[in-house]
Amino acid sequence: MFQPRSIDFSKTRTFTAKDRYNLVRIDNLRTPGAQEDDLFHSPEFDLLVQKLAQAKEEGRTVTCFIGAHVIKCGLSRYLIWLMEHGYISHLASNGAGSIHDFELAYLGGTSEHVPTAIEDGSFGMWEETGLWMNEAIREGAAKGYGYGQSLAAYADAHKSRFPHLEDCVFYRAWEMGVPMTYHVTIGTDIIHQHPAADYAAIGRASGVDFGYFCHSIAMLDGGVHMNIGSAVTGAEVFLKALSIARNQGYPTFHITTANFDILPLGDYRTDIGKDKYDYYYRPRKNVINRPTSQGGTGLYICGNHEATIPSLYARLRDRA
């Protein structure tokens, strides 16, 4: 019988992140109220603002799945404001989103220069990030925590390591009682490269988070789901969670979904053939069209995150 060979992860070399150059830093995060001079506008955006305000007023669920670039664009404080003011009741992301948030909290910076780091094998080999995150996940999974809970509890227990918790999205969510869940694919994240990685614990904690996310989607009727910049994971996780909710009889047909991205889709509500490349763009089908086929509204917000997210904050702030 053929036996595949595996690499010895214990031989992987790691390096301290203390002197690393970071493209995104605490001192260049964008601050709500200070940088909304040129607001984004579109008819779909206007309707989304209206639906979010209505959901908040009626106490409906608002779920939001972000790609890691929302953090890398320096927009953490806007996410925190949206949670604080009741416009996000469940925030989710992929594994990379957790890493950038974690690094900002302990290091004050994140986003290394990948093109040069991959050349010598130093890309992602950061001792503190890999060791501490894997410790947090392993300890949390042993207690039955989800991935997001595990990171927040670890940061709370080691506050001296994390001088920037006021800008940490998963920690602030934990303080507010807002579920912050992470949906991980093994092998996609730099902490999976670290010798301390425990793949069973990573899978267990992320699985717990999927259950939390499914519950929030089951409560989504009359509410809003936003997918901001996650072209694969967010769209797929949302569709599976929605299928589970409907399979179990939860009413989830009167919903508003909104996908934020920069890819022009034209008339995104029409069906297109498999001979068109954007047929394979998952959010078009899995966020905008299919979930609203029996009712509700699917929207596409086409613009850069650095314009759309601050504009969303400004429009909702001005309605208060």
Rank of each mutant, 00 (worst) to 15 (best):
Y313W: 12
L47I: 15
G146I: 05
C168A: 13
D38N: 15
G295T: 03
M83I: 04
T61G: 03
A231W: 03
I191W: 07
M125E: 09
P179Q: 08
S98Q: 04
L52V: 12
S111I: 01
R161S: 13
P283D: 04
T185D: 12
R5L: 15
R138F: 07
D198G: 04
A200H: 12
E128F: 00
V49N: 12
I190W: 00
A235K: 01
E36S: 08
D318V: 11
T185Y: 03
K51F: 06
K72V: 03
L82W: 04
K274L: 13
A157N: 08
R20L: 15
N134G: 06
G59V: 00
N227V: 05
Q248C: 15
M133Y: 11
A141Q: 09
I309L: 14
E139H: 05
G273M: 01
A258W: 06
S206R: 00
F162I: 03
F123I: 02
H164E: 05
S216H: 13
D38G: 09
K274D: 10
T181Y: 08
T110Y: 02
G108D: 10
G203H: 01
Y21W: 11
M125L: 09
A245N: 07
P32D: 10
W174I: 11
T12R: 07
D221N: 12
N227S: 06
F102H: 02
D275A: 09
Y145T: 03
N134V: 04
H192Q: 03
I309Q: 09
G234M: 02
Q149E: 15
A17D: 14
L47G: 07
D101A: 02
L316N: 12
N247G: 13
G303I: 05
Q54R: 15
E236A: 09
L39N: 06
Y87T: 00
L265M: 13
M226C: 11
S42P: 06
W81H: 06
R269Y: 11
A152S: 07
V232D: 12
A117V: 05
S89P: 05
Y145A: 10
W132Y: 15
Q54V: 10
A196D: 12
A320H: 14
A105L: 01
T308D: 08
I262V: 15
E135I: 05
F170Q: 02
Y78D: 05
K159Y: 09
Y106W: 10
C214L: 03
D275R: 04
F40C: 09
E306C: 13
A173M: 06
Q149M: 14
M125T: 02
E36T: 08
T110L: 06
P195G: 01
H100C: 00
T31A: 07
S311G: 05
G95K: 07
V70D: 08
G211Y: 07
W126M: 00
D101I: 01
V237Y: 10
Y281A: 02
H158V: 01
P291G: 04
